[in-house]
Each structure stands twice: as structure tokens, then as C-alpha cells.
């Protein structure tokens, strides 16, 4: 199992991150080293083992449908890089 540069590039687009050529090379090498280190684990037959996705086994509970306090508009927008009256502003959606 070897990860290709193409797969790595696809993943970085999905993570919305751009790596420099050197960083990309470095990551590709490291990733394949890690995969190599983990080879014995990856090949273990764990079909009967249930995954653990959570930090604890505590059971969850529900809240009632009762309105609480929301932020004021100026609080909501306080850290916004760009805002426009009541709104957050973003560059146009359509890619050209």
C-alpha cells in the first residue's frame, strides 16, 4: 500500500490546503513511512473488533425544546473578517 502524489493532492484540495512543492514531497515521504510503520496493524484481521469512536462510554441525554439566549448581531459579527450590515460577507461563489 503506497500513497501516490495524486491522492495526496486530492486530499489537500479536500482539506482546502495548498502545500508547497517541498512540503508536498516531504509529506509524501513521511506518509508512506508511517504507512510502512503501521503495516502490521493495517494488515491485522480486525473484522470481529468493534471500533471505538468516542472518548467515553457515558450515554448521552436530551435537552428540552426551550429557547435560550442567542448572540446579538454585533456579537455574532464581532470577529468577522468582513461583514455587511447584518451579514457575514464572502467572495463570490461562482468560480471562473
Amino acid at each position: 500500500m503506497t500513497i501516490s502524489k495524486e491522492e495526496l493532492r486530492r486530499a489537500s484540495v479536500d482539506a482546502r490546503l495548498k502545500l508547497t512543492v517541498e512540503e508536498e514531497e516531504r509529506l509524501l515521504t513521511d506518509v508512506n513511512k508511517i504507512i510502512q510503520q503501521a503495516k502490521s496493524l493495517i494488515n491485522l484481521d480486525l473484522q470481529e473488533v468493534k471500533p471505538t469512536f468516542y472518548g467515553s462510554e457515558q450515554k448521552n441525554f436530551l435537552r428540552e425544546d426551550i429557547e435560550g439566549i442567542s448572540l446579538k448581531n454585533d456579537e455574532a459579527l464581532a470577529n468577522a473578517p468582513e461583514s455587511d450590515q447584518f451579514y457575514f460577507r464572502v467572495p463570490k461563489i461562482v468560480e471562473e
Partner: peptide
């Protein structure tokens, strides 16, 4: 960034 791309991968 390398760590996050590793995660995405």
C-alpha cells in the same frame, strides 16, 4: 498543514 492533509488522506 501536513498533519491535516495526512488526516484528509
Amino acid at each position: 498543514k501536513r498533519f491535516l492533509v495526512f488526516g484528509a488522506l
